[in-house]
Design a protein around this nucleic acid. Sequence first.
DNA 1: GTTAGCACTCTCAATAAATGAGTGCTAACA
DNA 2: TGTTAGCACTCATTTATTGAGAGTGCTAAC
Lengths: 347, 347
Amino acid sequence: MDLNERKLKILQAIIQDFVSTAEPVGSRTLSKKYELGVSPATIRNEMADLEEMGYLTHPHTSAGRMPSQKAYRLYVNEMMKKHELPQAEKDSIADELYKNVSELDRTIEHAAKILSNITNLTSFAMTPKKDQDVLKFINLLPVDERTIVLMIVSESGKVSNLALKLKTEYDEETLGLLSKNMTYTFKGKTISEALTMDIIDTVHTDMKAMNELSGTVMPSFMKSLEDMLNVNLYMDGLTNIFKIPEYNDLDRAKMFMELIDRKEDFTKALIQRDDGLLITIGTENDDEQMQDCSLITATYHVDGKLVGKLGVIGPTRMRYSEISSVIEFLTDNLTNAYRLTGGDDDE
Amino acid sequence: MDLNERKLKILQAIIQDFVSTAEPVGSRTLSKKYELGVSPATIRNEMADLEEMGYLTHPHTSAGRMPSQKAYRLYVNEMMKKHELPQAEKDSIADELYKNVSELDRTIEHAAKILSNITNLTSFAMTPKKDQDVLKFINLLPVDERTIVLMIVSESGKVSNLALKLKTEYDEETLGLLSKNMTYTFKGKTISEALTMDIIDTVHTDMKAMNELSGTVMPSFMKSLEDMLNVNLYMDGLTNIFKIPEYNDLDRAKMFMELIDRKEDFTKALIQRDDGLLITIGTENDDEQMQDCSLITATYHVDGKLVGKLGVIGPTRMRYSEISSVIEFLTDNLTNAYRLTGGDDDE
DNA sequence: GTTAGCACTCTCAATAAATGAGTGCTAACA
DNA sequence: TGTTAGCACTCATTTATTGAGAGTGCTAAC
């Protein structure tokens, strides 16, 4: 038995219908709503075949058919047409995205919000992992007698700083020297490299004052580096799942909420995902609690290197085509906005 | 009819029982579980009185009684004993809180996490509002030919910065001048004051290069100030509501989720609340969706001035006493940790 | 190969009956 | 006069029953 054209057509119609109604679809409905040119009885026969082949399932004898995970996979791989967003929608998304450009993190967060608004699903956006980010500039700035600010700037434009209140007064000259010393030592190193370096050796000098100062500063420096390495995960549209019939059941809603509440695990899972546009359906997801969900993610780049992720999570029944397009459009825009030339240019 | 001692005793028992079981409590249960020294029949008579006085309600004729909002208010005002946390618990909370002190924001976020873990409710923590925070130091730092970093330090130790990529190269001397100029202009002003100042006038000079540079820098400066004004709201324990019988109903769970999803509104409501430990029960809350919830908040101080808030939201049936104690203990610790002397000291 | 017809299956909603927790009232008691 | 035992009554909740409706699978005719 093979998947002839009519079977494909019927399968596609079933997927289309089920995706928008969330109800098992019967042969009569199918023949009325879609121009298949055959009678319900014929459709029934084909459906029986499709079921035998594993593309359809039956909640119970007298219910209509619904697509199996295998069907969605087939759809995504073979049948899904690239959905081209209408220019008007593109414009409105881009407008919205750039309305509030400031920090990268804010933009990313904003992208998640836009995505959940459009898709009516739960969206997430991960800031880039920065282990390959290179330190460019380290500075210790005098603020007042006992306060200094430690500032770290990386190649990608990420700035981290921390106000340090010292127990004793410091000497401005020593501060300048330490600052230079640190820049000299760490400039050009990636954050991960810097973290593994032996601190005591690196900044040790003959000067007592310097040693004292660096003793106070270095722990904070290392902590800041660690902080810089952390990726942030923004989520939006959490309450959207309540609009989805699949989750009109307390237990399932609960499961879902618990899943996305385990942010650390979720972030880890995201980091491990391949780059580019990636769709995983149901049991294709490793996480047990995610096995009746689908996940679509895409990557964006900052400075051509650092990689962050953007995506949605929802029931396996979703508009793969449209949603993928929106995600791709957003990641493309993020990538363009944060090119090497900086985020201020229009081109 | 007055609230004699026996009535109070019975009321207290009902509150206690209902708070822990979430089930309407009947006269028989009451007389068996609590040492009231009277028979169920007598209790029934007293309960009828209490109901008439508005302290109890009846879901339906043949159900037990449950405390009304008025009863909780009475309890909170008059009957609630100050719950002293056992030293062991204090220690473990403090340990946990200080385990990861770095940035203020992280600590605040962490406090919310601890709070939700202990109370099994949804907790939130608001970072201080900074409108009274005074600008102390503004600096423009050269990073590379076209990149500068704008740094703003405030009295309270908050540092904000932004990497700016310029379209043209800049002159380091001009940069230094502008930096001095800006510090001179804005130092000592509160952030809100700075935002209302007329920018064009403030930095205008005769130098063309300077004007050009400041034209690029000032918008970012203002945006950074705005960002600094924004308070952040961290929430934790969102899924805890699923453990609460009151929300074992999709509609109510949904309502709750939507309520806390409207973060902006929620933040506004929090800002408007009075300082100190504040308990609002049911309809005492202004927000319509919050009228079958109770809210407990307390304030913490940073530098003796800036005020942030910490609290929980849950069903009106909650352990007011214990929870208040935990919140107070946490806010006290936050206040102490961020005194004028800085957060690094142990004392 | 396709289709009409029909018996059969199973869910879902509505209705009815049984259960049980708890009250309110009355009358007796200390 | 306050307290208590007893008992009828109420009402939510659970369980069982029934009927309607949607949809299939199979058979026989086209």
